[in-house]
Structure formats: C-alpha cells, structure tokens
Amino acid sequence: MAPVIRPSTGVGFCTPGAQAEIAERPNAASGEHSDTRRITLTVNGEQHDLHVAPNAVLLDVLREQLGLFGTKKGCDHGQCGACTVHVNGRSVNSCLMLACLQEGAEIVTIEGLAESAGFEQGHHPVQAAFLEHDAYQCGYCTAGQMMTAAAVISDDSIDGDETSLREALSGNICRCGAYKNILDAVQSARGKMRGGQ
C-alpha cells in the first residue's frame, strides 16, 4: 500500500474537520492488512467509529487515523513513556495496546488533557507548570511526561514527596535529562491542584 501523506496538525491541536477527514480513511494505521474491525472509541470527549486492523496499536490509530500527533512514538516497546495517554482514567503506554481491545474506552490524549479536567485547552495546571519551570529541552517526551504527571497527581495512593514522585514518574524517559525541572513542574502543579495535601 502506498504511504498516505497526512496534513500536519502541529503539536496536537487538530481541527475537528481534519480529524474527521482522516478518520474516514479506513485502515490508515493498519499497514498491509485488509481485514479490519469496527470499533468505537471516545477520544477527548468525541466518539469515533473506526475501522482498525487486528494488529493496530492504539498509538498508531491515534496518530494516523485520528491525526492526534501530540502523542509521540519513542521506543515503541514500552521503555520510554512518550506514548502515554489515559484510558478509562489510567495512564498507559499506548504503543503496547491493541486498539481493538479498547472498544468502548474513554481515551484522553494531550490534546484533550485540559478540557477533560475542566480547564481551557492548553491550560491544565501541569501544562502551565511545565512552561513556567522550563521542564523540557527538545520537547519530544513532554506530552508523555505531562500525561503521566496529571494521572500521578490525581492518584490518592501516590504521595507528594520527592522520592514517591520520582518513582511514579520513572517510566517516562527524557533523553535531554530535563528531570530536575520536570520534577519541579510536577511538584508545583501538584501543589496548585491539591493544595496542602
């Protein structure tokens, strides 16, 4: 199959029109397979009916069929965390999930993080804190870092001390080594979202 050239949508602020156009192409993330399944996913609050190949992973469907390029493909083997999204409220590595197994799931990507938590687009406290603390260099891991951070902050079982946060965030690798500022940003966002807790 010839490669499909898709419009660039920047860092994940995809217009609804562009999403719809891409979503209508069956099989975009499926490589050479013709056998597809029909699934329904709710992504960032919007329901999508999709045809996906049995071996399509959620990461590729989000990027290639829905045009949500904010979620990044790093190692593609669950070793770096760049592909982290929320599925039914939990942070997961979307590179190791078959899309077909997520039928009916509620998925949030970096494009919908703020709105899913009741903030204006782009203004989730974690996003604001990453800007304020300069918590990135090249930015490739940043979406995954923020998705994990948002899930960790809202998890009552994870304490806010530095050791606990470092442990909870360790699945997101930053090759630039911006960890100090990332941790500062997460601490700051946590303080704003949870107050003194």
Partner: peptide, 9 residues
C-alpha cells in the same frame, strides 16, 4: 517492577 503506566496495563 516496571512503571506506573505498565503496571496499569
């Protein structure tokens, strides 16, 4: 073992 995300899966 593993990470927050992988343990969730």
């Amino acid at each position: 073992g593993a990470s927050t995300g992988l343990r969730n899966m």
